[in-house]
Write a protein that binds this DNA or RNA. Sequence first.
DNA 1: GCTTGCTTCTACAGCTACTGTAGATGTTAT
DNA 2: ATAACATCTACAGTAGCTGTAGAAGCAAGC
Lengths: 145, 145
Amino acid sequence: MYTIGHVARATDCKVQTIRYYEQIGILPQAPRSEGNRRLYAQADIDRLAFIRHARELGFPLDSIRDLLSLSDNPDQPCDAADAIACRQLDQANRRIERLNALKRELERMIKQCRGGKISDCRVIEVLSDHGQCLKDDHQMAEASP
Amino acid sequence: MYTIGHVARATDCKVQTIRYYEQIGILPQAPRSEGNRRLYAQADIDRLAFIRHARELGFPLDSIRDLLSLSDNPDQPCDAADAIACRQLDQANRRIERLNALKRELERMIKQCRGGKISDCRVIEVLSDHGQCLKDDHQMAEASP
DNA sequence: GCTTGCTTCTACAGCTACTGTAGATGTTAT
DNA sequence: ATAACATCTACAGTAGCTGTAGAAGCAAGC
Ligand SMILES: [Zn+2]
Ligand SMILES: [Zn+2]
Ligand SMILES: [Zn+2]
Ligand SMILES: [Zn+2]
């Protein structure tokens, strides 16, 4: 059995984050030692590594919760898991699209600015007026991870 | 003078968001009517449009605060504004890089999965083991907007 | 004058996924 | 025994809003 600190080092995850995952029910309630410390087995480390890896790939905790409950039933068909991954890929693609649009606008405004006074600054000017942006670029909507 | 609802419609911004911006000091305290309603002038609408547009381009409110105080001093040199925009562009580029790495991994795991049972699912398998990812891809770090 | 319905007011809770902190214990090493 | 460190609980804070409750203002129709 391992201490929470050991698990944290093994998975490169903060101690508080482990407790948080337990609190929201994505990790099971760890059994306690005599002195009330949480005790972990290798399976818990594996589960946490899974969570952290999925987080690195941008999966939200809700999706990870679903993926974990799927992987707890290894005989089920894997369509649901694949669908979650596809959803994640879609999101990544949408975010990349949006970020590329933002990047284009930012590059444009920076390139056009010849330096000088704020009153002549293209950056300030374009930010004041979306009409000066490329058409159909950056029409808002979420972005994130 | 305009009501908060009018300003909200004019800038496609929720009423609460306007009050929030006032609260954090990025919009000035609006003068009030006899009945305690906030009253806005055209300059406030312009300032809010600037804020919303900068938000759409991914600038955090702290940067926007700086940009606004720069644009209030039109005779200053514009280096500082350009630097903020460059910083924003850098961030966008880093996020795009990272998202492309995630996208590659997601595509790989989805493509490799031939369907079937969870126990054979490549998605679950790869999520369980970062060793099966491409080297030097998705080495964590922040992402967001 | 009165009711209906809309807007606005304040104040606060909630969202995501953690992270940091305080103050109290438990454990280990010297 | 004492110091140093790990862990415990509980709560606040991060970014940028968004939603809600309950009270009050305001305009139109009757
Ligand atoms: Zn400039
Ligand atoms: Zn624009
Ligand atoms: Zn599969
Ligand atoms: Zn990986």
